[in-house]
Amino acid sequence: MKWIFAILLVINILFFTVMQLGSSHGSEPMRGHDPVKADKIKLLAEPQKALAMPEPPVASGDGAFSEVKPEICLEWGQFSGDTLKRVVQVLEKLQLGEKLIQRKAEKSGGYWVYVTPRKTLQEAQKKVDELKQIGVQESYIVREPPVMQYAISLGIFSTAETATKYLDQLREKGVKSAVSGPRTQEINATVFQIKDSGESMTAQLTKLKLDFPGSELKAVECRKPARDE
């Protein structure tokens, strides 16, 4: 019985020794790793939200968008009768195509230089022939009744000053029967507009204008002819 007791005692001693050794090893930190320090632990900040895309700029009413400028044309006029036919022939040689717009002259306002009405169409035509003999090639017999029928239009102008200036030129040529005044009656006249006219075209038209005294060449806002023109 004593040897059994001795064996149990040895087993208890060994068990106690193993337990002590295990406890001492568990208290040491793992080799190759620093011990965790609670006071150094920091929570990660929340991830930043994606930056919002900047809103597109809003156009303000103070000229943020430049105003579209109107298209500018050269306007040449006003022509009627035989003069209109000559101008058409001249412009056809320039081969302007769709750049050329033909329309009726404005019906209101303006001034004109004219020879007072003759009694008959034959007398008016005779006067036109006399004017051509002294160098006045541009004229038009008004045929619309009643007041100015058989008057002879020598030029239509936008201002009284330009009409008076042309009248003075006619008087220097010996035309004594011509007068100037407001255009109170509609005259069947035509004007031409030329689009996309550069310096070269402007120079050509300025030169051609010299062959048509009384006509006016100016820059205006382009416009489309009315359907009834």
Rank of each mutant, 00 (worst) to 15 (best):
K207V: 11
V115E: 01
V115M: 03
I134K: 07
L9F: 07
I134M: 09
K69R: 12
K37A: 11
Q78C: 04
T116Y: 12
K40R: 15
L208R: 03
S180D: 13
Q137E: 13
R118M: 14
K132D: 09
P57C: 02
L210E: 14
Y166G: 01
P29C: 04
P47T: 08
P117T: 07
Q125F: 08
R227P: 02
K209D: 11
L100P: 00
I156K: 04
Q125H: 14
M201N: 04
E144F: 05
Q133Y: 03
S60Q: 13
A105K: 04
Y114V: 10
V10H: 04
I194P: 00
A203W: 06
R103N: 07
K173T: 06
R103E: 15
Q169R: 09
Q102K: 15
R86S: 08
R171E: 14
E98W: 04
A219Y: 07
G214Q: 01
D82S: 09
D62V: 10
Y114N: 08
K37Q: 14
Q125M: 11
P225W: 01
E216D: 09
D82T: 12
F65L: 13
R31Q: 10
S24E: 15
Y140D: 06
V142L: 08
A105F: 05
E55N: 09
S66N: 10
M148R: 05
L210G: 03
M148E: 07
S200T: 13
I187N: 00
T184N: 11
E106H: 05
Q102E: 14
T162L: 10
G174F: 04
A52V: 07
E144K: 10
E55S: 08
V58C: 01
M19A: 15
K42A: 11
